[in-house]
Design a protein around this nucleic acid. Structure first.
Length: 460
RNA sequence: UCCCCAGUAGCUCAGUUGGCAGAGCAGAUGGCUGUUAACCAUCAGGUCCGCGGUUCGAGUCCGUGCUGGGGAGCCA
């Protein structure tokens, strides 16, 4: 007989005979003549309360059931006379699939996130982490649905790459060379003998590849892992993270801003509708203001202001910042947080950044000082989206590469896309984990990704 | 990479001016009970992160290393 998921059973509107559930024991409470066993199968936050009567042949073993044990229970779904739940499963049979020894590190009580990170292979068995990863799954689906509904095509951009996308971030090198005896030529590593015949690394962004496809299929997006070998030790950085990058042909900076706002509102609304129970856990135990923040995002129009205007607000704010405010300087975390959390108290889009603090592919504005770039800032997180209109004029692009000392040869295919049928286009990148942090109120990025990769930490 | 904080039982933590190592939960045993972070009693459980130093005496003070966390930079 096939198991029924607990999620499904708890939504039942009538008693059901002859069902089977399979899951893990969260806790057992013995009563006179029977035992209450809370079973969770991961389909939802809630447990199924199983009633195991002492008449069961293996009742003696059942009263030894420990937290974490795997069981299969057959029985009848009945209305519960107790208070905490509508339904319970009266067991006809309870098979102990595996009995967990008392060294099982998870208890019914709350654990610290720091401790759970040290047992990342077991933490999805807790309420909080199962909720995080169910939401992560729903959110992934919502991303695909959003784009599909709008005619975007999903592009699988490569993970292995020879080009350093933006000069952004340190790269993880990929090689099959024998590291104990690396072939040298003129004192340097001879990558012509490597697997691809060229220096290779893990991608830091799918954007450049996505642009090629936008200039063919129109509206496209990528959604996949990216890798940065930066020695960042913060609650907002991991070395392997997932990024969503839409790219739209015949689209300018305003279109990108419009899409980013619509996108964030859609995803927030989707999770609020589809993950009610899981979200409630975060609103109750992680961030008391969570629902207010999420509703705020959905209902408010994002404030849009230029970098110049943002600078004026900051310098007139009367606030003392650790970092100086001034044109040509990038916005620091404290500036972003002041704008979105204190001044506007809602999401803010800042656009037209000075060109000298932005990468080569962003389109230079007519003032020749700024580029058509935009960042979306949200409360609690800061920058969640960064995007731009791309430079479609081949002469301007080549001049920019030269000026920044980047090799036109390395980017030959990228430049060539501007030679043949070039068209204005724009796009942005959204940090998937940062969005999850925003939606759950979880404050450490290590806790919204299954197995976080951070400097000197890759045990799992 | 820089600044700050922390490390005590399986887990969450307390530990006073330097003076016998503590509680709750988890575990074991027994009891009670349609319970729901069940409850009650008893028992068991320790390299006080490692190394070095000061002291009659160090969990406590000093130095150093390791690990974790918070903040910053870099960025998504």
């Amino acid at each position: 007989m096939k198991q029924t998921r607990i999620l499904h059973l708890l939504q039942s509107n009538r008693p059901v005979d002859n069902v089977i559930i399979k899951g893990w024991v969260r806790t057992r409470r013995d009563a006179k003549g029977f035992s209450f066993i809370e079973v969770n199968d991961g389909s939802c936050l809630k447990n199924m309360q199983v009633i195991a009567d002492s008449s069961l042949v293996n009742y003696k073993e059942i009263t030894k059931l420990s937290t974490g044990s795997a069981v299969a229970v057959t029985g009848s779904l009945m209305e519960s006379p107790g208070k905490g739940q509508k339904w319970e499963l009266k067991a006809d049979g309870l098979e102990i699939l595996s009995l967990t020894p008392d060294t099982f590190p998870l208890q019914k009580k709350r654990h610290s996130d720091e401790f759970l990170r040290t047992i990342a292979h077991l933490r999805p068995r807790t309420n909080k982490y199962s909720a995080v990863f169910r939401i992560r799954s729903e959110l992934s689906f919502a991303i695909h649905k959003f784009f599909k509904d709008r005619g975007f095509k999903y592009i699988h951009t490569p993970v292995l790459t020879a080009s350093d996308c933006e000069g952004a971030g340190e790269l993880f090198k990929v090689t099959t060379l024998d590291l104990d005896s690396v072939p040298k030529k003129d004192g340097k590593t001879d990558f012509s003998l490597d697997f691809f015949g060229a220096a290779t690394s893990l991608t830091v962004s799918g954007q450049l590849s996505a642009e090629m496809f936008a200039l063919a299929l129109g509206d496209v997006y990528t959604f996949g892992p990216t890798f940065r070998a930066e020695n960042s030790n913060t609650s907002r950085h991991v070395a392997e993270f997932w990024m969503v990058e839409p790219e739209m042909a015949f689209s300018d900076l305003n279109d990108a801003m419009d899409l980013s706002e619509e996108f964030l509102k859609y995803l927030t609304g989707y999770v609020m509708d589809e993950c009610v129970d899981d979200l409630e856990l975060f609103a109750k135990y992680v961030d008391k203001n969570l629902m207010k923040t999420l509703e705020g995002l959905i209902t408010s129009d994002f404030t849009r202001l230029s970098y110049k205007e943002a600078m004026e607000i900051l310098s007139k704010s009367g606030q003392t910042f650790e970092f100086e405010v001034g044109f040509g300087k990038d916005l620091q975390s404290e500036h972003e947080r002041y704008l979105t959390e204190h001044y506007f108290k809602k999401p803010v889009i800042i656009y037209d950044y000075p060109k000298n603090i932005r990468p080569f592919y962003m389109r230079i504005n007519d003032d020749n000082k700024t580029v058509a770039a935009m960042d979306v800032l949200v409360p609690n997180i800061g920058e969640i989206i960064g995007g731009s209109q791309r430079e479609e004029r081949i002469n301007v692009l080549e001049a920019r590469l030269d000026k920044l000392g980047l090799s036109k040869k390395d980017y030959w295919w990228y430049v060539e896309s501007r030679r043949y049928g070039s068209a204005y286009h724009s796009g942005f990148g959204l940090g998937f984990e940062r969005l999850l942090m925003f939606l759950t109120g979880v404050t450490n990025i290590r806790d919204v990704i299954p197995f976080p990769r951070t400097p000197s930490s890759i045990s799992f």
